[in-house]
């Protein structure tokens, strides 16, 4: 069982589908079929988190896997967690000492894997997400707009909507904006709502999780 192609585990933050490294998409899909058909509990409608090592799967493969899960089993993929191959299983790697909310698997390099660059303003009703790295916006994020990243969120304009960095629990993630006047900030599962009607301060600011486990906002000087 330890060497199964896919494993399903329940953790505090929900179901995780753990995929063995270096397996082809077809083999993964077959293994999922076998796993799910062997279960006596219906899974339909629940959401799963996919944990996998750096694998030969392309982002297209990941998208296919996501549609495969939703089309065939009505499973909603809540996110991908791509771990470094040499790491332990993602769950074992979750640090116990630091009070990581909800026991999320955290801190792997891959969350910073790459950056997705968005060359437009994110307007009300629009969402941009990158669950394999950081997001950089060459524009504003307006009220009602939303940016989600497993790494950092960098807005080279005004952040007036919602931003969620470290969406997989990486608490060292930051949110930065030239004008930081958001409706809501989230890092990991920490939430910060700045006072309403806050005026831009006229300098870039950065939000991070501070020592007291709250999101602090300060002037951005340099990393």
């Amino acid at each position: 069982m330890e060497n199964a192609v896919v494993k399903l585990r329940g953790y505090k933050d929900g179901l995780h589908l753990i995929i063995r490294p270096k397996v082809s998409l077809i083999d993964i899909q077959n293994a999922i079929k076998e796993l799910i058909s062997g279960m006596n509990q219906p899974l339909s409608g629940t959401s799963v988190h996919i944990d996998m090592s750096t694998s030969p799967l392309t982002s297209d493969d990941l998208r296919n896997l996501e549609t495969h899960l939703s089309d065939n089993y009505n499973l909603v993929v809540s996110g991908f967690n791509v771990l470094d191959e040499n790491d332990e299983s993602p769950i074992l790697a979750a640090p116990a000492a630091h009070s990581i909310p909800q026991g999320l698997p955290a801190d792997n390099q891959q969350d910073y894997g790459h950056a997705q660059i968005v060359r437009q303003t994110i307007r009300s009703g629009q969402t941009t997400s990158c669950l394999t790295g950081s997001v950089i916006i060459y524009g504003d994020v307006n009220p009602g707009g939303e940016v989600i990243a497993s790494g950092d969120v960098i807005v080279l304009g005004a952040l007036r909507g919602n931003a969620h960095a470290g969406a997989h629990g990486k608490l060292t993630s930051v949110i930065m904006a030239m004008e930081l006047v958001p409706l809501q900030l989230q890092i990991g599962s920490y939430v910060n709502r700045p006072p309403l009607g806050q005026k831009p301060r006229g300098y870039p600011e950065i939000a991070r999780v501070g020592a007291e486990d709250i999101i602090i906002v300060e002037e951005f000087i340099k990393f």
Binding site: Q120, R123, S124, Q126, P143, G144
Partner: peptide, 12 residues
């Protein structure tokens, strides 16, 4: 203004 922003996104 919020609704206008939404519409602008759709039109773009």
């Amino acid at each position: 203004i919020r609704d206008a922003d939404r519409i602008i996104g759709l039109l773009q």
